[in-house]
Design a binder for these strands. Structure first.
Lengths: 339, 339
DNA sequence: CTGAAAGCGCTTACAG
DNA sequence: CTGAAAGCGCTTACAG
């Protein structure tokens, strides 16, 4: 900028004004600055210097508790990102993805990212990356929990929604079962009998399983066996789901996502089981495919939750948000009413 | 940092060294600095100041020619982003998505993003955002073209791949047809008869249609009608595909993506047409569903192309890359061999 | 309408 | 092992 000023025969702050408030600069001077900038290949104020001066980076940091690469494979995470992007667009802010891996480097990555606030995708309470984000003193929004001091949360009431799902799927069930997200970061696929839900690290998983237990008590049925997947992805859950069918011969399943429910429906197909007569299935998310396959599922808008997280992280909103959810009752459970 | 230095009773550069090269600082001093930082809630050097000083932002800017929100719905774009994220992870760099909209604000958004290089998703030659990125003098990589001065390109040879696809689908065809990506930013869904391929703005679309024409000449068949979709998305292409079937009654289709091919296969289903006997279909991308549905398609790795773009934008690589592609021949075309 | 000066928070050779 | 000084590129009241 100094070079441009010299070339144009003006002071550096005149050049600065030329870019920030051109009306403050006379037409002649404007012309001189424009010409000098053109000649020198100067494309405008350096964003980094501007950020330092203004104490505002114009960027929003997004951290996933796991390997960032997985986020692009998860349809719900993509909806969430789209929601964030929507706010970034209107606010003229960059969406900075921090390439988390879930290992010890994440804190360092968070520290190194120049942004004005953070969004953290559902994680565990002790997450280092989360702690680092909070320690910066900048606003942080967490999707799905946990609720911690220094951060706001955007989430549905997972427990209440779980009660609703489990009631619908498990009513009249003799051999209910659950297909669950991982309990903790050590993601081993496995079958669990009677796990202690309150000990589960991931808050979304915990609340949902607690809600399922609530419903079981209410329905006076025993706690169901739980198939814990390694990842929220239909094809990788297939083997475990087959095991579950072999071991538990369920007549009603609650799965923690559409994706996992599809693995269940596929397996039912393979075994020639009629849904919902011989097997009731219900889940969470209500993606487009859930509608097509007639899956009873909890609808929630991750797009909208992304928007709310972005608003919090950009200081456009101060408080946590309890996001909306609705049970979409379809053919995969007996009481299905949607055509 | 100055405050911490004062509190610790040392100079500011000792604090700086404490963070950058702790070995240069005596254990006692380290302890003093650590204590002071802790007390004051100082979490380490300000990334923005560091970036200004180092002349390196530690961020990679990514621009989509269209509305960023769409990117998260396009499976190929997501694969591409995952590839970029993979390199950002190993290079300890942030992945900065610039919320482009395709309108006149994009240049401003690009200018405002603090990063060390840019990746631009396939766009038109005159794109303002692209020009702005190039004007910064920082490295820019373009996926899919166009080839312009000051930028490197990562792309398959679309024309050659199109010849391969069209040969396979159109051999023995009497009424071939094409389902094409948009020609330009004015995205009206429509049927075109005998469009001039060389005039098409989007380079990927242009090269593919030119290749299809090459194959038609070779097979001595007339140029096929072209259904131009508004967006690369199966459900939104449905109506147009139905029109195409009504108007052209095709017995062979080349679609520019798996997604569009699925819309064609669905429509064939609906009309009770046998594939490939009554209708041959071939496309590009080879996503997981292509395999499941036996679609003949061009395999290319957008993940790998994302990696290469990232390497270019981070100055890890200097030259353009001609990406790999392979025709996967399956049941949707007569010569299908894959089991 | 235009300019002198201080400062955003840091690092880098260079002395000591 | 530790510190004084200059400077990364910009903006902001404040004068004139």
């Amino acid at each position: 900028m100094l070079d441009v000023a010299r070339a144009a025969g003006v002071s550096t702050m005149t050049v600065s004004y030329f870019y920030s408030r051109p009306d403050r600069v006379s037409p002649r001077t404007q012309q001189a600055v424009r010409a000098a900038a053109e000649r020198l290949g100067y494309t405008g104020p350096n964003p980094t210097a501007l950020a330092l001066r203004r104490r505002r980076n114009g960027a929003l940091g997004v951290v996933f508790g796991e390997h960032l690469t997985y986020a692009f494979e998860d349809p719900q995470a993509c909806r969430f990102l789209a929601g964030i992007a929507d706010v970034c667009r209107t606010e003229y802010v960059t969406l900075s993805l921090i390439p988390s891996t879930g290992d010890g480097d994440d804190a360092r990555r968070v520290r190194a990212a120049a942004c004005d606030g953070y969004i953290v995708w559902t994680t565990v309470p002790g997450d280092e990356a989360l702690a680092t984000a909070v320690a910066t003193g900048k606003p942080v929004a967490i999707q799905g929990g946990p609720r911690i001091k220094g951060a706001r949360t955007v989430s549905i009431n997972d427990r209440a929604s779980a009660v609703a799902v489990a009631r619908t799927s498990f009513v009249n069930a003799r051999r209910p079962a659950v297909v669950s997200f991982p309990f903790d970061r050590d993601r081993r696929a496995r079958l669990e009998y009677d796990p202690d839900a309150s000990e589960i690290e991931f808050p979304v998983t915990r609340e949902r399983l607690l809600g399922i237990y609530d419903a079981c008590r209410e329905l006076r049925i025993a706690q169901p066996p739980v198939a814990v997947v390694a990842r929220n992805e239909a094809s990788s859950a297939r083997g475990l789901v087959a095991d579950l069918f072999d071991e538990a011969e369920p007549d009603a399943v609650v799965a923690m996502s559409d994706q996992l429910a599809f693995a269940v429906l596929d397996e039912a197909d393979r075994r020639g089981l009629h849904v919902p007569q011989q097997l009731a299935v219900a889940a969470w998310d209500d993606g487009p495919e859930a509608h097509e396959r007639g899956l009873t599922t909890i609808a929630q808008s991750l797009f909208e939750q992304g928007r709310q997280c972005a608003r919090i992280a950009l200081s456009l909103r101060q408080s946590s948000v309890a996001a909306d959810w609705t049970l979409m009752t379809r053919h995969s459970t007996a009481a299905g009413t949607e055509r």
